[in-house]
Amino acid sequence: MIEICGVTKAFGNKKAVDHLDLHVRAGELFGFLGPNGAGKTTTIKMVCGLLKPTSGTVTIGGHVAGTREARQLLAYVPDQPYLYEKLTGREFLRFVVEMYGLETKRASKRIDELIDTFEMRDYIDDLCESYSHGMKQRVVFASALVHDPKVLIVDEPLVGLDPRSARIVKDLFIAQARSGVAVLMSTHLLAIAEELADTIGIIDKGTMLVRGTVAELRDRAQMQGPLEGLFLKLTGGDRPISGVGMVGEGPAGSNGHASTIQVGEGESAR
């Protein structure tokens, strides 16, 4: 459904994405992992058609990314979503369904369903300017799903959500994937990727380092335990942190921060 073939995106002399190949099938929930500045958001923006690749191709359902056909199939939830502050949540959802040309009766029914799913009935008719971050996120998720997209792109989906909202969103991702939607989810939270993703890809410096199911990744790295160790090992995050002590080296090590680093590499830091 999402086909990224040999894509490079350069900003001046710097390559944010370098010869990236990535395929996400219909019904697959793909967890896109990588450290800050690895090229995740750039890749996602190219899939959404907001950035044009320097070379290579990105297609959505066979349509070149950015074309009207591709956008019709796609829903995008950015890390910092946009809402019209002077619209109510319901008016915002109506605007989105009108943009997608949905038939009025069907659209109203779908909006009502989503209001219930995201438990927004108490505030949906208030102006968005009065919403908290979590309320806004729920409206944005509802707006992404209101037109039944075939591809769902989500950048850092759980930022600012309370546990219940986070549970709703996680269940929803799984339900969307099981109903045949291709979900590309970028996240920093490794536990979320482990919990939800069918397939995980780890990107660093614009290059895909590894890709597979959690089990495949563990087999490949010949290690057990949480994904964090593998992630840190691959992305170089396991190197010692200057000024932070390790287990047994004083107070810093005793709070458990540094011990996590030790697990990945299996060697003590200086």
């Binding site: 056909e69 019709q72 109506r94 009108e98 943009m99 997608y100 040309g101 039944d148």
Partner: peptide, 23 residues
């Protein structure tokens, strides 16, 4: 590469987007 056709009911016409912006 297979292309997913868009169902006619879910394609937006220029008139519909214009109406949406007007609204």
């Amino acid at each position: 590469m297979s292309t997913i056709p868009l169902p006619p009911s879910s394609t937006t016409t220029a008139g519909q987007t214009a109406r949406a912006f007007r609204g």
